[in-house]
Computed example of a mutant assay.
Amino acid sequence: MTDVAPAAVPFDLATLKMHWRRRIEAMRATGVLPLIDVESNLGDDLDIQVFARQMDGEGVALIAFSAVPQGRGWNDAARHAVAADPWRYIPAGNGGLPPDWKRDPVEFARASREHTRSDGYPLMGEYEFRHYPSPDQIQRGHRERDEDLPIDGPAGHELFRFSAESGISFQIHHEIEDQTLAPLEKMLTQYPKAKVIWCHLAQMRYQSRNTVYGPDYVRKLIEAHPNLYFDLFSGPPDHVYPGSGEYAGRYWDRSTGKLKPEWATLIADHPWRFMVALDLNPFIMKAFPRKVAVQRAVLDSLPPSAREIVAYKAAWKLLFNEEI
């Protein structure tokens, strides 16, 4: 991917949006429900041509490409991706990932703000506040990643304040636990214009640490905070988080492979607040077809009136302030 010179910045979003619209329309014309993935961290060595064919085969129209800093400070890989394939990638900021984010979160948040503003990114990446080791990290023996950065600390205020001022959305990874809910609600109240995507609806890796969160709680949050959104990433119904030995995706009815009715009803009632995510990273690219299948199972659980909105329309409206 990096064999191609990076795209000029600020990004020419008018031209890029024209390409992206045509791609979505082409998929719809063949009867495919196109997907926009709002949250993936892809590596610099991605084989653009091979992955383009995979995206086409799975009906994934666009991926919000967020680079992986890897201890080098800001990474411009999203610019290379857009230059190499302006039809398939929405440039997203790096997001807050270790080690850069953990080492100096305030400075990283400020760098994110400056690059987002000067380069014209339509979306900031995923910032990890409370984050347990991912399943693939545990499988590789890396259990040391256990991030716990207060969302109402200085770095959190930098991000919320910038989003409120600029109207540009950002994503948070914030494990669902009783202790994490009040600080997030505090920030949402303090910054009502900040556009926040809470990643991974109903992913609860330790159920005993949650007695509050559920569809009724999420409904109340949505109604109280008009700029709060959720991505729908989850492992499949039979996925067990290796750290706890528990099923992590709490919205699944494992007997049917579809959403539990109460979760499906919540999403159908507020489809513009939910969007597809694949949560790809360089270590799990082989899982791409399976991850797409999981998100399509989520969409199949919804009434037809909500599917197109959640599949791609909600993301487009959030990122570009217009309907497609």
Results as ranks from 00 to 15, higher is better:
Val212Asn: 05
Met187Glu: 10
Ala268His: 02
Asn227Thr: 14
Tyr247His: 15
Pro215Thr: 08
His239Thr: 08
Asp238Glu: 13
Ala248Gln: 12
Val292Leu: 07
Ile222Ser: 01
Arg205Ser: 13
Pro242Gln: 04
Gly214Met: 10
Leu266Phe: 05
Gly243Ala: 11
Trp272Gln: 14
Thr189Tyr: 11
Gly235Pro: 10
Phe283Arg: 11
Asp279Pro: 01
Val218Phe: 11
Asp253Thr: 04
Ala287Lys: 14
Lys220Phe: 01
Ala264Thr: 02
Trp252His: 02
Leu278Ser: 07
Arg250Ile: 02
Tyr229Gln: 07
Pro242Ser: 04
Ile284His: 03
His270Ile: 04
Phe288Asp: 01
Trp252Met: 07
Arg290Glu: 15
Trp198Leu: 15
Tyr241Val: 02
Ala264Tyr: 03
Pro242Leu: 07
Trp272Asp: 14
Lys186Val: 10
Lys260Tyr: 02
Ala194His: 11
Phe274Leu: 07
Gly243Pro: 00
Lys286Cys: 06
His200Glu: 12
Val196Thr: 12
Arg205Asp: 13
Leu188Asp: 06
Asn210Pro: 10
Lys193Cys: 10
Thr256His: 00
Val292Arg: 03
Tyr241His: 08
Leu228Lys: 10
Ser208Asp: 13
Ile197His: 05
Phe233Trp: 14
Ser208His: 13
Thr211Trp: 03
His200Asn: 11
Asn281Pro: 01
Met204Pro: 00
Pro226Val: 10
Phe230Leu: 13
Phe230Ala: 04
Asn210Leu: 06
Phe233Glu: 03
Arg209Asp: 14
Tyr191Trp: 12
Met285Glu: 08
Ala293Glu: 12
Ala268Phe: 02
Ala224Asp: 09
Arg290Gly: 15
Val276Thr: 15
Ser244Ile: 04
Leu221Gln: 14
Trp252Asp: 00
Ile222Tyr: 02
Ser255Cys: 02
Cys199Lys: 04
Arg273Trp: 06
Arg273Leu: 04
Leu266Val: 08
Leu188Ala: 08
Tyr247Phe: 12
Leu228His: 08
Ala194Ser: 14
Val212Pro: 01
Pro242Asp: 03
Ser255Thr: 10
Phe233Cys: 02
Val240Ser: 00
Gly245Phe: 10
Trp252Lys: 01
Leu259Trp: 05
Ala194Val: 09
Pro242Phe: 08
Cys199Val: 14
Asp238Gln: 12
Ala224Asn: 13
Thr256Arg: 02
Lys193Trp: 08
Arg205Met: 15
Lys258Pro: 00
Lys193Arg: 15
His270Gly: 04
Thr265Pro: 00
Ala287Thr: 13
Asp231Ala: 07
Tyr241Asn: 07
Trp252Thr: 00
Pro237Gln: 04
Gly257Arg: 02
Thr265Met: 08
Ala287Gln: 15
Phe288Pro: 03
Arg250Ala: 09
Pro237Val: 02
Leu278Pro: 08
Phe233Asp: 01
